[in-house]
Nucleic acid binder design. Structure first.
Length: 256
DNA sequence: AAAATCACCAACCGCGTGGGA
DNA sequence: CTCCCACGCGGTTGGTGATTT
């Protein structure tokens, strides 16, 4: 029973990579490009499984990796993306050029989690710890951050961009497991001014609230650039998330 | 100085998914 | 339609250096 191993384990090295192995892998990929990981080790003369080669390349050897300490801006961006996407590390990494999902995952678990805890915020739900404790007595939530929709301010955001989180479990869903709980992001039904893309009601567009003030996604909102309708701002937010016609295209969030 | 504990992060493992046969 | 393979992802583990006792 069980899954067949991804490679012949009897003749593969495990553990830390040596300089020589790194050099071989780099040389092979420079010559032949990425891909076909299963056959790569043999072709490159490496006693490693393809998976291991891929991981080593993606997480450590790739030339476009940034490495080094995370900046404060990166910290905040990770926190905000995590509040939207949950533990979708590859999606988060896709928004942080030069960073890998593994790196961000490790950084989250070692630094940011603690940082949020010291701020009194539950890193799983992005809600105040005491509030989380209270709610846990009556409702069931799991770590995917769409559950933050329950919190009033976050709820505004989720409502306005139409997050229907399948992992935001409410009592009705628990009682009706057959309900279609597909995760979907759609335009808000409302046409009224959208408070949702203001950060704490301070009038910053959604891009800026994610720390992307210099990005093309920013409408140069400043602090007061959200017009009476707010419509333009929310469209920009959809663009930022890769929304096409109001539907989230998850793949567009991934690293190209 | 030695032992114990903590923190970090590279690497591994198992599973889900898409595509081709 | 089903099966198989390869890839990619997220969770977890284990080694190592730093810090504390």
């Amino acid at each position: 029973m069980g899954r067949s191993p991804c490679c012949e384990k009897a003749h593969t090295n495990k553990g830390a990579w040596t300089k020589e192995e790194d050099d071989r892998l780099i040389a092979y990929i420079r010559a032949h490009g990425e891909g076909c990981w299963r056959s790569l080790p043999k072709a490159a003369g490496l006693l490693r499984c393809g998976k291991s080669c891929r991981l080593r390349w993606i997480n450590y050897l790739r030339p476009d990796l940034k490495r080094g300490n995370f900046t404060e801006e990166e910290d905040e961006l990770i926190i905000k993306l995590h509040s939207l996407l949950g533990n979708k590390w590859s999606l988060i990494a896709g928004r942080l050029p030069g960073r890998t999902d593994n790196e961000i995952k490790n950084y989250w678990n070692t630094h940011i989690r603690r940082k949020l805890l010291t701020r009194g915020i539950d890193p799983a739900t992005h809600r105040p710890l005491n509030e989380t404790a209270q709610d846990s007595a009556t409702t069931t939530t799991i770590s995917f951050a769409a559950s933050s929709a329950i919190k009033e301010e976050d709820q505004k955001i989720s409502t306005s961009i139409g997050i229907v989180g399948k992992e935001s479990i409410n009592p009705v869903q628990e009682k009706c497991p057959d309900l279609n709980l597909e995760l979907r992001i759609s335009p808000p039904s409302q046409t009224k001014p959208v408070e949702s893309f203001k950060s704490g009601g301070r009038g910053v567009c959604f891009s800026c609230s994610l720390g992307l003030k210099d990005s093309k996604s920013c409408c140069s909102c400043g602090m007061d650039n959200i017009g009476p309708t707010g419509a333009g701002t929310s469209n920009i937010a959809y663009d930022f998330l890769g929304l096409k016609n109001g539907v989230l295209d998850y793949r567009s969030l991934e690293m190209k």
